[in-house]
């Protein structure tokens, strides 16, 4: 009897999760389609987009550059030191291209923006729901996917892509400093190694991956925020669920991108 009820619970939870995932993916697809529909875009969208990029990227820029220089330099310095210790000096280029440009830049940027803007967006949506502001938009026939979701998603996608690239450039440049210190390598030699190791498809992968991160770290908080209850107590629950799912999405995208890279 106990076993059966335990099984029932497990099955119920699995079905519930599956239903939720299907709803989420279905809505994600609907929003994704709107991204490519001209009708979705109006001057208002650009206006909100600009404001959102300002909050997401420009306000963060100073802090972001400091973090890139400090963390990036430290990471690259330590790793180059280890590379030298184990005698794999000829792989510096591959390391910087493969690890720094393709993996570290997007993941660091995504984490920073998810923590800062993703959580803010999640809370904003949940509060709008609790205040019935989403109902107000619906009452005026304003599509929340077009008005609220789309500009925020595009803004974060653009921000993650640009900041990831900036991160990659800053860290690669700080790698120059450490190569000079650790290997006594000049600018030209370093530039040659990096240039040889980086392929144009790396740029493309960086862009696509950053854009995918940007989409999901905004869409998921928007989705969970907008599905919160009407009570204010529902706000923290919505933020919690949204952010946990953001984390899962980041891991899934990272794994998928690794699989795609090595297939």
């Amino acid at each position: 009897m106990n076993g059966v009820s335990w099984l029932e619970k497990l099955g119920g939870a699995a079905l519930e999760n599956w239903r939720e995932l299907r709803q989420l993916l279905g809505f994600a697809y609907a929003v994704f389609r709107r991204l490519f529909s001209r009708a979705s875009y109006r001057p208002l969208t650009v206006d909100i987009l600009t404001t959102q990029i300002y909050f997401t990227a420009v306000q963060l820029l100073g802090f972001f550059i400091v973090v890139s220089i400090l963390f990036g330099s430290l990471f690259i310095g330590m790793t180059l030191f280890v590379i030298k210790e184990i005698g794999l000096t000829e792989y510096i280029g591959q390391f910087i291209a493969g690890v720094v440009v393709l993996e570290m830049a997007p993941i660091m940027t995504t984490l920073l923006i998810a923590l800062r803007s993703g959580s803010a967006i999640n809370a904003e949506m949940a509060v709008m729901k609790a205040n019935r502001e989403l109902d107000a938009l619906a009452a005026f026939d304003i599509d929340i996917a077009q008005y609220l979701f789309l500009p925020r998603i595009i803004a974060v996608m653009v921000s993650v892509v640009l900041l990831s690239s900036l991160f990659a450039i800053i860290v690669t440049l700080s790698g120059l400093l450490f190569s000079a210190l650790i290997f006594g390598m000049g600018f030209n030699a370093y530039a040659d190694i990096i240039a040889k190791a980086i392929e144009y498809k790396d740029f493309l992968i960086l862009m696509v991956k950053s854009a995918a991160f940007g989409f999901f770290i905004t869409f998921i908080p928007l989705y969970y925020g907008s599905r919160a209850g009407y009570q204010l107590t529902a706000v923290p629950v919505a933020v919690l669920r949204g952010m946990v799912n953001v984390f899962i999405a980041i891991v899934v995208i990272e794994v998928l991108s690794l699989v795609a890279r090595f297939l």
Binding site: D47, I48, T50, T51, I53, V158, S165, L166
Partner: peptide, 20 residues
Amino acid sequence: MASKSIQYKVGLFIVTTIVL
């Protein structure tokens, strides 16, 4: 809606980063 200052800063950020 976005103020001129915000538009200017965002524009500068996007253009500078793309140029980089």
